[in-house]
Amino acid sequence: MSDPSRTYDILMETLDDIGERTDTSLRCIEHEPEVWENRMQATCEALSKNGALDNLERRRLEDRMGESLYVRFPVQTRSALTVAHTLMDREVFTEEELRAKMKGVRAKLEEV
């Protein structure tokens, strides 16, 4: 089980990029999903199907972490944060590996 009290600097640092949650009503989840949100959902489905991270377990973790650790983050980002958090807890990849991957993605986006 993932530790909802443990923090990872790499995940907390993304708040500077995305910005703090400003809408506290449920309307913030009533929107047309962005492309990355659809892809994230597909990734979660694949992780669940392959037994790496059960959808129900992820949703429970997302609820717990979203109400505590990730409360300042926009609702739409919490799935990504929860999945990354859980996979690092399970030692699928390290915080340093995620940091390096994110750096590479940012570099590619700057080229465009």
Rank of each mutant, 00 (worst) to 15 (best):
K101Y: 08
A46C: 04
D16T: 15
E20Q: 14
S2R: 10
G104N: 07
E34Q: 15
E37I: 14
Q76G: 03
E111S: 14
S48Q: 03
V75I: 05
D63C: 06
L87V: 01
Q41K: 08
E32I: 13
G104T: 09
S25N: 03
P33Q: 04
L69I: 00
V75R: 06
P4H: 03
R64T: 11
M102I: 09
D89P: 02
P4M: 02
M65V: 00
S48Y: 03
M40F: 06
T77W: 10
P33F: 02
P4E: 02
R99Q: 11
D9Y: 03
R99S: 12
E67R: 11
C44G: 04
V71F: 09
V75H: 09
R6F: 02
S25H: 02
T86Q: 00
M40E: 14
I29G: 01
E62S: 11
L26W: 08
R6C: 02
V75Q: 10
T94Q: 04
M12S: 10
F93W: 12
G51Q: 05
V75Y: 09
S48I: 01
T24W: 11
P33T: 06
D9S: 10
E13L: 13
N50S: 07
I10P: 01
R60D: 13
E30A: 07
D3W: 12
E97Q: 11
N50V: 06
L26T: 06
E57W: 04
E13P: 00
H31P: 00
R59F: 06
H85I: 01
L61D: 14
C28Q: 15
E45D: 14
H85T: 02
A46N: 06
F93C: 06
T82K: 07
T94F: 11
K49M: 11
F73P: 03
Y70F: 15
T7A: 05
E13Y: 04
I18C: 14
M1G: 15
G66S: 08
